[in-house]
Amino acid sequence: MPSTQEKLLDLFGNPAPVAVVTGSGADRVGKTVALYLAEHGYRIALHANGSIDEAEATAANLCDQGIEAKAFAADLAEEAEIQTLFDSIHFYFGRIDVLVNTAAIWESKRFDKVTAADLRRQFDVNAAGTFFCCQAAGRRMIDQPKGGAIVNIGDWSIARPYPDYAAYFVSKGTLPTMTRSLAVELGTRNPGVRVNAILPGQVMQPEEATSEKIGRDVERTLVKRKGDPAYLAHAVLFLIENPFVTGVCLPVDGGRSIFASGDFSASG
């Protein structure tokens, strides 16, 4: 069986490929994905906006473990900042092999109160920000002999949306089409570039969640199991390292997108 470095060398042409994880500053899904990829042989470019201090602390911790990592700040609602972000990452590491788009905003507002500014804010980060990150990373990947891999993070609830998040769901609903389109755009330029997406269920509970709420959320799944960010990170690694999968939107939701328990909740 080949070693991790041999496997990554064969897949990416480098024994220590570079993974960019957007939205990996705060202690949420992005950070979990970044740490998981670091454990599996990847050098890590952490991205954050408001939580850059946390991203820098994570990068320092990884460096202490002998894993090359660096934090970068950017507002993904600004196209120019995205271009500067990826210029800086590529200049520092010399390559970009993987992009995982976990950065997103999630805001509650009654449908009748949503303004054009609200809708644009959701689209600027969740849709346009993801698109331009893919574009910036994809430009580097198509120039690399082995290409690269992009994983977008969507939301299972676009299939069964709940009230008071209309602007969010409309913005997140673009990701499956974007994923398929960019898989074609980049794959036809370099067959080694793959683009996939994950549609996660509730893999993190809010700090204030009661045991009763967590129990209800478990019962709403088919697998009767509490979600965990590690499940999503495991799926990310699969999509990164399987060279025969592209254009796929994979639910990681415990079966919630296909199962209605009869008990409605707007908790995700």
Rank of each mutant, 00 (worst) to 15 (best):
P163G: 02
V184F: 11
V203E: 03
V252Q: 07
V218N: 11
V125T: 07
Q202S: 12
P176D: 09
A127K: 05
V21K: 02
W156T: 06
L239M: 09
A260L: 02
R120F: 02
L99G: 00
R120V: 14
H40E: 04
L222D: 02
F12M: 05
T115G: 03
R95E: 07
G154T: 14
D10T: 07
C133T: 09
S24C: 08
R216S: 10
G268M: 09
G147Q: 03
L76E: 07
L8I: 04
P2F: 11
G227A: 05
D124Q: 10
E107T: 13
L35Y: 07
L222I: 15
D155W: 03
F244K: 13
H234Y: 04
A80K: 15
R28M: 11
I153Q: 11
Q135V: 06
F238W: 13
T22W: 10
T22F: 11
M141H: 01
Y168N: 14
E241P: 01
D97W: 03
L175M: 10
V170F: 12
L35M: 11
G187W: 07
F72N: 04
Q5F: 12
A69Y: 13
N242H: 08
S257I: 05
A197F: 00
N101R: 02
L85Q: 08
L85P: 03
Y92V: 15
D112S: 14
Q144Y: 01
E241H: 02
G66D: 02
E56P: 03
R43K: 07
K113S: 15
D155A: 14
T246Q: 09
I96E: 00
D10R: 12
A59L: 09
S181V: 01
R180C: 01
M141V: 06
T179M: 00
L237H: 11
K70G: 10
V33E: 13
Q5V: 09
D143S: 12
A117C: 01
K172M: 08
L237M: 06
P2R: 03
A266M: 13
A19F: 12
F91W: 03
S181Y: 01
R121C: 14
L35I: 10
F123L: 15
F91A: 15
I240C: 07
D143M: 05
R256P: 00
G23E: 00
F132M: 14
I44H: 00
R225F: 08
A183D: 04
G215Y: 01
E81C: 11
G41F: 03
F91I: 11
P17H: 08
G227L: 10
P251G: 09
T102A: 07
I198R: 14
G187F: 07
K7E: 06
R120K: 15
I258L: 09
E68T: 08
L222K: 12
G23Y: 01
F132D: 04
L250V: 09
L76N: 02
E78P: 14
I82E: 09
A34T: 15
S211V: 00
P15A: 10
K226G: 04
D253C: 11
F72T: 06
L8Y: 00
S108C: 13
V100E: 05
A77T: 14
V151M: 06
T130W: 00
G41W: 11
F244Q: 15
V218H: 08
D253V: 15
G247L: 12
Q122Y: 11
F131N: 00
P163I: 00
A34K: 01
F264L: 13
F244V: 15
I89G: 04
R110Q: 15
V252D: 01
F238C: 11
E241W: 02
S171P: 03
V151I: 11
T179D: 02
I44R: 02
